[in-house]
Write a protein that binds this DNA or RNA. Structure first.
Lengths: 233, 233
DNA sequence: GCTTGACATGATAATGATTATCAATTACAT
DNA sequence: ATGTAATTGATAATCATTATCATGTCAAGC
């Protein structure tokens, strides 16, 4: 099956603009991508959808999924959701609707407006823009992030150099020194046990506090947290 | 000057949650970042703002600008705009307002709603979310992209291997062959002049058409465009 | 006044998310 | 059967961003 989509603007040597229109094919990969997107409970990223498609097409490439999500959204067959400043999501529902976005884990869900809110919008002054549409999005915290169990929110970059626990070697030393102690310790004490300079210990403590692995119940005294103990495991 | 901002959630070994609150300092870099963001006509990306800050602080690091934009927006001193799925923008205006976003070049401008549109929204069913706010965004094409001069939209990745014109070596050969011809050429003719296999010429023509460097005034005949001629220069 | 603690920086490495290249494959048109 | 065109997988490359680390700066405490 062939469908006509995607106009590429170009300009010939005489200066006239025209559009290149090219035939697209409905390949097996595209059919499966569309089907899995319809089945997906929610609005997946390319990577999340790739995991589903790969179950059905073992040889499919992540680049193919990325490429086709852009092509299919450009062709108007699916919606592209750009609600986070770093990662795109996709939606099989082409109808205008409202989303809610979690500020912590970046998850996106559908949400309905109260019926009396559903009106058409118009901009007062288009400022030269040609307006093609609008979107409304709610933001807040999802149920999971509200309970805040072990969930620390969206993906954060961990240093592969540090290993799976997200600890660099100096941080591990500091954490191990704290783990040995039954009471909150000062930086100097930690430095002694860890065999490190006190200034370096101070820096690592700052980083570990940000990761939630170290706490300061008394000023200038530190102790390992539950997360910190898990990170050492 | 010191301000108290940024609470980091942590949990001690007894299982009790608490917040770490840390002092932030208003460094010279932060003051200048805030000032330049206020002066910026529009909503810059980190990279765009870095260019302005660097004019006043020659030694400032891009990482410092990135880090501080996140810190300052986390502290509520500036707004973070996540309207494109790949790049964040920032705004000094903390008031709730509406944006318009160009689907071609990704530029973001402020826009005002018609007065009768300005009502408070409520979601019908929060689905367990704690809703903290909402946003409305218009989308369309900006004045520049509507006229479509030489502007090809947002940044696209060019291959450094190809050089500044964004042409790989085979593409350059094909384009040069086309530049020599006064009339539209078939693939086979191009293959002869370029000393390449016809099949490879075909692939390169496809890529060049997408880049807007080659056009097809007659089916199966190709000619170089004005952009294509510029790309060869 | 000195020491300790804490925040911040620049340089640079590293990462996540995405896109480009290319030879080969598949499919359509003539 | 041949020519043309779209698509793919593997992989390299890029963009946008974040982490690391040694050092600098500044505030607090003794």
């Amino acid at each position: 099956m062939i469908m006509i989509i995607n106009y590429i603007h170009a300009q010939n040597v005489d200066g006239y603009y025209y559009q290149v229109c090219n035939m697209l094919r409905m390949t097996q990969q595209r059919e499966i991508i569309l089907e899995e997107l319809k089945k997906f409970a929610g609005h997946p990223t390319a990577d999340e959808l790739f995991d589903e498609v790969k179950k059905r097409l073992s040889h499919v490439s992540l680049a193919t999924v990325y490429r086709n999500l852009e092509i299919l959204s450009g062709a108007g067959l699916i919606s592209k959701i750009e609600i986070s400043g770093r990662q795109k999501r996709f939606d099989s529902d082409l109808q205008q609707h409202t989303h809610v976005y979690c500020l912590s884990c970046h998850r996106v869900d559908n949400i309905e407006l109260q019926s009396k809110s559903s009106i058409d919008f118009k901009a007062k002054d288009h400022q030269g823009y040609r307006i093609d549409g609008y979107r409304i999005e709610f933001k807040g915290f999802c149920p999971d992030c509200l309970t805040k169990t072990d969930n620390k929110g969206g993906k954060s970059m961990g240093c592969k150099k540090c290993g799976t626990s997200g600890l660099s070697e100096p941080q591990r030393k500091v954490l191990e020194a704290l783990a040995k102690s039954k009471e909150p310790c000062a930086g100097k004490d930690i430095a002694l046990v860890a065999g490190m300079e006190a200034k370096q210990v101070s820096c690592q403590i700052t980083a570990l506090k940000k990761k939630g692995y170290v706490a300061s119940p008394i000023r200038c005294k530190y102790e390992i947290t539950r997360d910190g103990q898990k990170a050492l495991a």
